[in-house]
Every structure is written in C-alpha cells, then in structure tokens.
C-alpha cells in the first residue's frame, strides 16, 4: 500500500500550469501546493492572487510562471478581485458578449492574506455567494516579509514578531480556525488539505471546482525557511502535522463534516515538533499544554464528523 502512495502522484495531469523557473525557496511545499491546485483547476481557470510569497516568486516582470490567466492587485483583496472576475464574466455571458463556457475562478492567498488582512474581503465574497474557489496556502506566518507571526501561527511557535525570549515562549495565542469560520458562512464546500497529500489536495480542489457557489480549501503548506527545518523535509513535516492532528484533514460538504484522514492512534505532538527550529525553545510543560489542546480539538472535530466510529 505504501508503494501505491508513492506512485499515485504520477496519475496527476502532466501539464504544468504553474511552471518551473519561479523563485520559490528550495523545498517550498507551498509552490508544490500551487502546482497541484493548478493541475486540479485545469486550463479553463482564472486565478486572482494576493500579494505574498507565491505572487512575488511567480511574476517578476517581465517573466511569469502562470500558464493560465492570472491577476494580482493587492494584499487583502484577492477574494474581492476574484468575485469581480466572476461577476464580470457572468454578466458578459448572460448578455451574449462572451460565449457561454464553464470557467473556474479561484482566489488565492497566504494565511495573512486570508485570516488577517484579507478576512473581510473573503467573508464578503463567500457571503455574497459567488461561484468561486478560495484557496488559502497556510505556511503559518508572514514568510514573504521575514517570518512575522499571523493569526494562523500555532501556539508556541517562535517568529520574528513573536520571538521566544527569556520571558516569552513564542506565539501566545492559538491558531485561528479559518476552516470553521468559512463553514460558519454556510457555503457548500469547505476542506482542509496539505501538499504532503497531493492526491487528496488534488481531489478536494476538483470537488471544490464542481460545487455551484463558493468553496474554500485551506491548505497547510510547509515552509522550510520559516519553520527552520531542512529543505528536504517539507513533505515529512506535512505528514506529521496531519498524523499528530496538529492539522487534521477534513471536509464540510453542505454542512456535513467528514474526516478524510483518521488514525486510530495519533502520533504524539513531540514527533512533529522535534527538529523544527520554531518550536525548539518549548519546555515539556508547554508541549504538554499544546498536546492537551490538540487532543481536545481533535475529539471535538471527530464528534462532528459523520464518517467515524464514535
């Protein structure tokens, strides 16, 4: 079965819509996520992207890594721009000024452009019910500007604006639960994903694209630079985030929750923290506190899911 996991990604479409030659750091699992998401979106898509790592690395004038139509305007407005593209095309097709055709509109942003500065525009677009997907590539801090904390940074992580010091132990707040916030908008499709699970990510984006109305995919995207791990370990840590339930994988389809990865025995959070520079300062007491919270949150999530044995 393990071998199948290895070969399954070869089944993805060969065509690259987010091409090589971009300037992402070595081992960037966010660039990998964008690549897989674009394969799932396919050629008949338009992307509106927020300012951030992926925008900067993919579009320095006069070059571009994008083989599909792509627009960037600013940091906080990717969802609003995407909803504008959707509205424009809808009006033009209805009025006979463009031939009718299914075009998938995707907004994309990092965790800052989604959970912090972009939250209002995203909430507005989801509430208005535009037929679009929004993908959050969550690398758990403002990596583009130099690893500053965001509301998606996990408790305890040391960043340049939540540094671990003599009196503080890194980030002092718990990670904002963006997928829950999106689910609370009552939209037809919400999912979490991780580029360490490429087939799962691919399938979720495919499902999101088929949904009529707004869909949201929250993709954990490991950042070796910001997490202070070796560049070859991004996939391993992505898997550990899921296997420890630090980042559980699930879907909310028309309000119904289902886990897409469930383990009878979760790995201890120490397996995930070990080797990550951003967590190296944590005391055993702090780790125990985090473990308790993760276990509790996971049980709460499992209780909501309809496809697990309770």
């Amino acid at each position: 079965m393990i071998n199948l996991d290895l070969y399954a990604p070869l089944m993805l479409p060969k065509e690259e819509l987010f091409t090589s030659g971009h300037r992402a750091c070595q081992g960037c699992a966010e660039a990998l996520a964008v690549r897989i998401v674009c394969k799932a979106l396919g050629r008949n898509s338009i992307v509106a992207m927020a300012t951030g790592c992926m925008e900067i690395v993919s579009s320095p004038l006069p070059t571009t890594a994008w083989q599909i139509p792509w627009i960037h305007v600013a940091f906080e407005n990717a969802a609003a721009v995407a909803s504008g593209v959707e509205s424009g095309l809808k009006a033009l097709m209805r009025k006979g000024r463009l031939p009718h055709k299914k075009i998938t509109i995707a907004g994309m942003a990092g965790d800052g452009g989604t959970a912090d500065i972009g939250l209002q525009a995203l909430s507005g677009a989801m509430e208005r019910g535009h037929d679009m997907i929004f993908v959050c590539y969550d690398n758990e801090a403002y990596m583009n500007t130099g690893i500053q904390r965001s509301s998606a940074t996990p408790f305890g992580a040391s960043t340049t604006t939540s540094p671990a010091g003599k009196v503080k132990a890194g980030q002092e707040t718990w990670k904002k639960n963006m997928p829950e916030i999106m689910a609370a908008h009552g939209i037809p499709y919400v999912a979490t994903a991780c580029s360490a699970y490429p087939i799962d990510l691919y399938e979720k984006v495919k499902r999101a694209a088929l949904v009529k109305g707004p869909a949201y995919v929250h993709c954990l995207s490991v950042c070796p630079t910001g997490w202070r791990i070796p560049s070859g370990d991004a996939i391993r840590y992505g898997r550990l985030a899921v296997e420890t339930a630090a980042f559980p994988l699930y879907e909310v389809i028309d309000g119904k929750y289902q886990l897409t990865f469930d383990s009878p025995k979760l790995k201890p959070i120490t397996d995930y923290f070990k080797g990550q520079g951003r967590f190296r300062h944590l005391t055993p007491e702090a780790v125990a506190r985090i473990q308790e919270r993760i276990t509790r949150d996971y049980e709460k999530l499992r209780a909501k899911c309809e496809n697990v044995n309770k």
Binding site: N77, A80, A121
Partner: peptide
C-alpha cells in the same frame, strides 16, 4: 448588470478591478 453590494469600498474597487479585467 451584476450589482455587487460589497462589504467595503476597498472591496468595491477590487471587484471593479476584477470585472473590468474580465472585459466588463
């Protein structure tokens, strides 16, 4: 026409950017 009643002026101009870029 599509009347897009947004949640802020920032989004109003952003929606306009998207729709005019789509040719509307």
């Amino acid at each position: 026409a599509e009347f897009v009643p947004v949640e802020s002026e920032h989004s109003a101009m952003s929606v306009c950017a998207g729709s005019v870029a789509a040719g509307a």
